[in-house]
């Protein structure tokens, strides 16, 4: 019958034993996990965290590319930040950036990326490969090349677009600089969202869609009631990533150089002009810090949504 053994004598050092014994799947343990992450964290610390902290510091000084302040920058506290907040050019850039992010990332890339993923969701074969291939091509080509391709496409006299529309001489980059870079960035970045949503849609159990269809749900209702609840985590994480990427994207400079008259001078371009072209490094660093703070707010906003919608 019951083969009970003698009760255990209190084993000494039991806690230490349990701690030495790693419980993760591969038996890494914290020490080895730390070793695995150390090289990556070291590089990140030196080439990312350190420069970032340096930017924070520079933002508090009058550091310039040339002149007396290049050798001995003055510490001026928050003056640069105050100056930025009173500068209409900064606010213009901020609103342009918001337009750029909303237009090209949130509406353009997410909307188009999702549409393509949805259209092609249960297709196989050459059509799907062709569409996906072209979209991804726009994403992996070097920015020097694609920006030039768009300069050619939008050229007022011999550009393909004007030829197709039959309106030779229409100056897209001068008359509609924001529209141009928004459409350009949509074209450039849709691939990431498309691939992400493609994978996410693949994870929606077909039986859920089928039972919705049996219940008579329209395409739109299926999207809202079945698909979206399944992928909303993906949607928010994707939005977070591409919002951050777009916010800090410098490529619009290659199309319009921020012009004309700063009408497409998004913050990334604004910083470049202030810091590199005018040489006001301290002020530029302060602007970068402000951008960091705005990004932080955006990120926290998305993460909040992510948490509350789980």
């Amino acid at each position: 019958m019951a083969q009970a053994t003698s009760p255990p004598d209190a084993a000494p050092g039991e806690d230490a034993r349990a701690r030495r014994h790693s419980t993760d799947a591969a038996g890494l343990g914290r020490v080895r996990a730390a070793l695995f992450t150390a090289p990556a964290l070291a590089l990140i610390a030196v080439f990312l965290v350190f420069p970032a902290l340096w930017v924070l510091y520079l933002g508090l000084t009058t550091y310039r590319l040339t002149g007396a302040d290049a050798a001995e920058p003055q510490f001026v506290g928050l003056d640069n930040f105050v100056e930025a907040l009173w500068d209409p050019a900064f606010w213009d850039s901020t609103w342009l950036t918001v337009e750029f992010v909303l237009g090209s990332a949130v509406v353009g890339q997410v909307g188009l990326g999702f549409t393509i993923a949805w259209l092609l969701r249960d297709r196989r074969g050459p059509l799907k490969r062709l569409v996906e291939g072209l979209v991804i091509l726009a994403w992996i080509l070097p920015s020097a090349v694609v920006s030039f391709l768009w300069v050619a496409l939008l050229d007022r006299d011999s550009g393909t677009l004007n030829a197709l529309l039959g309106i030779p001489g229409f100056p897209w980059l001068l008359d509609h600089p924001m529209l141009s870079i928004v459409v350009f960035n949509t074209w450039r970045g849709t691939a990431f969202s498309m691939m992400l949503y493609g994978a996410a849609l693949g994870n929606v159990p077909p039986s859920h869609l089928e039972s919705a269809r049996l219940a008579g749900a329209t395409g739109w209702q299926q999207l809202r009631d079945v698909v979206f609840p399944h992928i909303k985590g993906h949607v928010l994480t994707n939005l977070l990533l591409i919002s951050l990427w777009t916010f800090n994207d410098f490529t619009p400079f290659m199309l319009t150089a921020g012009g004309p008259d700063g009408r497409s001078e998004v913050l990334a371009v604004h910083v470049y002009k202030v810091a590199v072209q005018s040489g006001e490094l301290g002020y530029g660093a302060a602007l970068s810090t402000i951008i960091l703070l705005i990004n932080l707010v955006v990120a926290v906003f998305y993460l909040r949504l992510l948490r509350s919608k789980r």
Binding site: I44, F47, F50, L58, A268, V271, S288, I291, L292
Partner: peptide, 23 residues
């Protein structure tokens, strides 16, 4: 992870070219 992600999207832009150059 999120903090590093935030930093990376900024630092790889134009903001950090000065400190990176000095570094």
């Amino acid at each position: 992870l999120y903090v590093l992600l935030l930093l990376s999207s900024i630092i790889t832009g134009t903001a950090a070219i000065v400190p990176l150059f000095q570094l």
